[in-house]
Simulated scan of single mutants.
Amino acid sequence: MLSGLHHAAIICSDYARARAFYVDILGLTVVAENHRAERDSWKLDLALPDGTQVELFSFPAPPPRPSHPEAQGLRHLAFTVQDVAAVKARLESAGVAVEPIRTDPYTGRAFTFFKDPDDLPLELYEAG
């Protein structure tokens, strides 16, 4: 059966802006970057330290997300961190708006939300 999450795929509206956000601000590692001329599209494979990947795609004029945040389908991506407050502070120092830290009532762990350049909701979730 399933043994883990390999990747999540994101379509962005501005490739350079999204690449800078995921690489320079969030610190994901570039695994591969390819321009697909026949589709006028970039595909950027990014890795987290645990091997999980994020695929970042660009396409000409992608439609916007239909509603936020409760549209049917993927609600948000959650990233595990050791210290939510420290990562929140680092993101805010880079100009990223981050919601106040909350506590998960079921696990007691800290978490918060922020958005990528296309308003995709992202979560920081403190590891146990």
Rank of each mutant, 00 (worst) to 15 (best):
L28H: 03
L74R: 08
E99I: 03
I11M: 05
D83Y: 00
V84N: 00
A94E: 14
V96H: 07
M1C: 14
G27R: 13
D50T: 14
L48M: 14
E123N: 10
D45W: 12
Y15D: 01
A94D: 11
L44C: 10
A8G: 15
L28S: 06
K88S: 12
L122Q: 08
F114P: 10
D83K: 00
D104I: 08
E123F: 10
T29M: 11
D45R: 07
C12E: 08
D50E: 09
H35A: 11
P64N: 02
P105E: 05
F111E: 00
E33T: 00
Y22S: 06
A37T: 09
P64I: 02
A8F: 13
S41L: 02
T80R: 14
I10S: 05
F59P: 00
S41W: 01
E55H: 09
A78K: 01
T52P: 08
V81R: 00
I101L: 03
A94G: 06
L74C: 14
I10Y: 08
A9I: 02
D40E: 11
R39L: 14
G108S: 12
L56G: 06
E92K: 06
F79P: 03
L122I: 12
P66H: 12
L5E: 02
R36I: 15
G128R: 12
R75A: 14
C12I: 13
P121N: 09
M1H: 15
A20R: 12
T52M: 11
E70M: 10
R19L: 03
V31F: 06
L28K: 07
A71C: 09
A32M: 13
A9Q: 12
A97W: 01
H6L: 08
A16C: 06
R90S: 14
D14Y: 01
D104E: 13
L77N: 05
G128P: 14
L120G: 07
A18M: 12
L28E: 03
D118M: 04
F59Q: 06
